[in-house]
Computed example of a mutant assay.
Amino acid sequence: MPWKAPLSAAEARVLATLMEKARTVPDSYPLTLNSLQSGCNQKSARDPVMALSEHDIAEALDGLRERSLVIESSGGRATRYEHNAGRVLGVPDQAAALLGLLMLRGPQTAGELRLNSERWHKFLDIGSVEAFLDELQERPEAKGGALVVKLPRLPGAREPRWAHLLCGPVDASAHAAAAEPTPGAETPALLERLVALEAQVQRLQDRLDRLDPAAP
């Protein structure tokens, strides 16, 4: 099915949060509106950090339902929501995981995606990540066209970063300016430690999601 982009920033955050929680907290999935808002606005593993209201999320859900990207289910004491991204976009689970991570965390290298995807899908190596990214970039127009783009390599960087196209074309120059190194910029070792700490915070957040008082 051809892709009917673009998504708004809020729609992308809601969709990616549903994709994440389906993999990381399956016992609490599908999500209630309360759990979804908490996941969208969490401080860890999000770039940018957002502060979406219930109204913002409700509007985003309406837009996603119109594209069949979200399915609403009722039962118990609360309405719940689940994503339908893989089927609508026509991509395998591995590619969907990469798209979800790019929507949640912004542009990343293949190496960063492999580290960050540990709880979504265990890729064998960076080469396998790059293979799925290449498929997403070379997707034929008959299937909706490219869903990711490889950004120009930054000065001094060893790997190029990738960005998703679900919110429309990407301004590579703007991303390059935002990623310019600053004094005290993270070393690779420090970046790996930060990723590990984010994963630990994410696990704690997932435990809190299971205790959602709005859940039946």
Score class of each variant (00 low, 15 high):
74 S>Y: 11
157 A>Y: 06
38 S>D: 09
53 S>H: 07
106 G>K: 01
106 G>V: 04
116 N>A: 04
126 I>R: 15
164 H>F: 01
194 L>N: 14
177 A>F: 05
192 E>G: 03
37 Q>G: 12
147 L>D: 04
21 K>Y: 15
107 P>S: 03
175 H>L: 13
38 S>C: 06
177 A>M: 06
180 E>I: 10
62 D>V: 14
191 L>K: 14
44 S>Y: 07
167 C>D: 11
146 A>L: 09
202 Q>N: 11
15 L>A: 03
148 V>D: 08
10 A>W: 00
31 L>Y: 01
51 A>W: 06
61 L>R: 05
40 C>W: 03
66 E>Y: 13
96 A>Q: 15
179 A>S: 12
186 E>L: 15
172 A>T: 08
158 R>W: 09
127 G>S: 04
101 L>I: 05
67 R>W: 05
120 W>P: 00
173 S>Q: 14
84 N>A: 11
191 L>S: 13
64 L>T: 00
163 A>R: 00
64 L>G: 02
138 E>P: 01
193 R>T: 08
77 R>G: 13
128 S>P: 04
63 G>Y: 01
37 Q>V: 11
130 E>L: 12
78 A>V: 07
175 H>Q: 12
139 R>Q: 03
42 Q>M: 07
178 A>V: 06
42 Q>I: 02
19 M>R: 09
142 A>R: 14
184 G>K: 08
18 L>V: 03
136 L>S: 02
83 H>Q: 15
60 A>V: 08
196 A>K: 05
124 L>P: 02
209 D>C: 06
34 N>Q: 14
97 A>L: 07
79 T>M: 13
106 G>N: 02
75 G>E: 12
114 R>P: 07
105 R>P: 05
94 Q>K: 14
18 L>I: 02
132 F>M: 09
208 L>E: 13
85 A>C: 08
85 A>K: 05
116 N>I: 03
185 A>G: 10
30 P>W: 02
138 E>C: 07
146 A>N: 04
105 R>D: 07
133 L>H: 08
179 A>V: 03
180 E>T: 13
17 T>S: 15
138 E>Y: 10
43 K>S: 10
195 V>N: 12
149 V>H: 09
117 S>L: 03
61 L>S: 08
151 L>W: 02
166 L>F: 08
202 Q>R: 07
67 R>S: 03
158 R>P: 02
86 G>V: 05
15 L>H: 06
124 L>R: 15
48 P>Q: 02
24 T>D: 11
136 L>K: 01
17 T>W: 01
67 R>F: 04
47 D>S: 15
176 A>F: 00
36 L>D: 03
28 S>D: 04
1 M>C: 09
148 V>S: 08
47 D>M: 12
2 P>V: 10
83 H>D: 13
10 A>Q: 01
143 K>Q: 13
27 D>N: 09
79 T>A: 15
117 S>C: 10
82 E>T: 11
73 S>T: 15
159 E>Y: 13
101 L>G: 02
100 G>K: 01
152 P>R: 04
141 E>K: 12
80 R>Y: 01
185 A>T: 10
109 T>A: 07
69 L>T: 04
206 D>F: 00
70 V>Y: 06
25 V>I: 13
172 A>Q: 08
